[in-house]
Design a protein around this nucleic acid. Sequence first.
DNA 1: CTGAAAGCGCTTACAG
DNA 2: CTGAAAGCGCTTACAG
Lengths: 335, 335
Amino acid sequence: MKRSSIKDIAKLAGVSVATVSYVLNRKEGQRISEETRKKIFEIAETINYTPNKIAKSLKTNKTKLLGLIVADISNDFYSHMARNLEDKALKLGYTLIIGSSDENAEKFERLTQLFSQQQVDGMIVAPVAGSEKTLENLIDIKYPVVTIDRYLKGVSVPGITIDNQEIAESTASLLLNKNFDKMIYVGYETDLPHLLDRQHGFEKAVSSSSKTIEIQYLLVGLENIVQEVHSKLESALGKTPENTALYFSSNKLAVAGLSYLVKNNIKVPEQVSVLAFDETDAYDLFPTEITYIQQPIEEMAEEAIKLLDGQITDYTATGKRITLSAKLVAKASLK
Amino acid sequence: MKRSSIKDIAKLAGVSVATVSYVLNRKEGQRISEETRKKIFEIAETINYTPNKIAKSLKTNKTKLLGLIVADISNDFYSHMARNLEDKALKLGYTLIIGSSDENAEKFERLTQLFSQQQVDGMIVAPVAGSEKTLENLIDIKYPVVTIDRYLKGVSVPGITIDNQEIAESTASLLLNKNFDKMIYVGYETDLPHLLDRQHGFEKAVSSSSKTIEIQYLLVGLENIVQEVHSKLESALGKTPENTALYFSSNKLAVAGLSYLVKNNIKVPEQVSVLAFDETDAYDLFPTEITYIQQPIEEMAEEAIKLLDGQITDYTATGKRITLSAKLVAKASLK
DNA sequence: CTGAAAGCGCTTACAG
DNA sequence: CTGAAAGCGCTTACAG
């Protein structure tokens, strides 16, 4: 594979590489005769010239590459996020390099280094537990970074999140007012602040409620989600629950929980009401339409790219954090 | 953001950049004293040196970047494929740039050009209808490309597919032997060969069967899949079907079709049996476990990366096509 | 209107 | 054991 360069064009056109560079980049400042301009374009066309962005990058110190680190690109939420980010990035001329951290701080750091070596202009990351140091190192050298979906305590880096605690609290209050005998919060055993926010929002609603309802918290690890949720729900719900509400703090947990309900033929919302964070196509296959909390993914992606692009062109140490509002999409799964 | 270069190290160590380059790259051929070697590593460490791969790429003509073009990264099948490719690529030191074509030939070409300009070492693509010319242009300049999942008629490019026609034929035969009154094939109105293969396999099974069963083909466009499937199933099935089999040629079609069954309270497998191509977590939420055809995604990813890496290091015009076997995962949805 | 030249950060054949 | 130098394909301030 041999590609042509501006040197080839210059030789064929009988001009200097500088001239070729000027016309191909349509530089305004330089006045080049219409004649040579035309000739250069023609030659570029016929020898099928494509610019070498690597060379350009080396000179300009801009790669127009953005690094994206998610927990797992095969996860519904992140693949949709990635898709939206891709579209928004492309509009500003950026291409996305994507990596999955698997909730592993070392892997997260390795991706960070990989991207940095590839000279990405900036990174959009969903940080994992234990990645504070990695993020701080990036900030120290003023590498443009924005977080998305998640954030980390004690690390000041610009980013986009939703109002996790607020939406959790208001939706939990909604449930509390429905006079269930029992409410079960299904969440993660985790240090990730955005997930803890959801739990705290829920707890806050509970503690500020005058109702005396039995509340139970089922917390599962990041591995074997389905099995853990099934076994914990089995102890907590049994096979014939009545007047109970299930609050899932992520779509993965919801899918795991709903499959338990399906398998045990538990009726929603007759026996159990369901509310879940995040959507997924999977809900369509459940007999009852699921009430869920919808994150504004497209807007999050747009703001993230805008924020990062801003940091790239004009870095400010105290980048702003943007909090967007999630909303409840009410369906039949809530009594 | 100012990063240090080997020049900085050289200056601090009092040696030439050549020497620094040699020790940092652990070149065997060059004998450098243990003393200066140690000094260089120490300095690199303290000034937090990270190599500029862009510069290296320009010199070596290798970026260790791979372009991946899928139809839509937010699609379950492709996001899982991407994830597997990412893992396999990383093992060989490659990083993935990802783009979604949206089944649009122009977008496909644009991504191809973008990736080429970024000097990716090779591309893994799921070609779209009408992208023959784009692929041929790549082949003409000997750009390493492998196709995955899909292929295109009349374009000779190495790639990985599964035995779409064979598995469709054998699974359709299986259904034909179960004495249904009616069998409905739900597929796409498309020119994509790998999808037509599925349909042809189904047709072949039908025509070589001695049974006289009512066979119906429901073909939908790539847009508004859910609505189209719903309305077509409504006409074909009605509300109280009996002894009918549904054959979905993709997981997206299956999810659309199953949601119709759920909404209309049609029992599987009592009234309707179901078989689908590809898996998805969504099946877990359907009351009956779904029988599906499983593609060996991990193996496909591994072979694709291996094949592409082979083409990169030693290009052969007649790259081989690899066909892997899909298998049927039998569950309760089949009577 | 156009060109010579420096330089981005590396690698590597060659010389000593 | 180590260094000077060329060169990868561009961009751009400067000179004419």
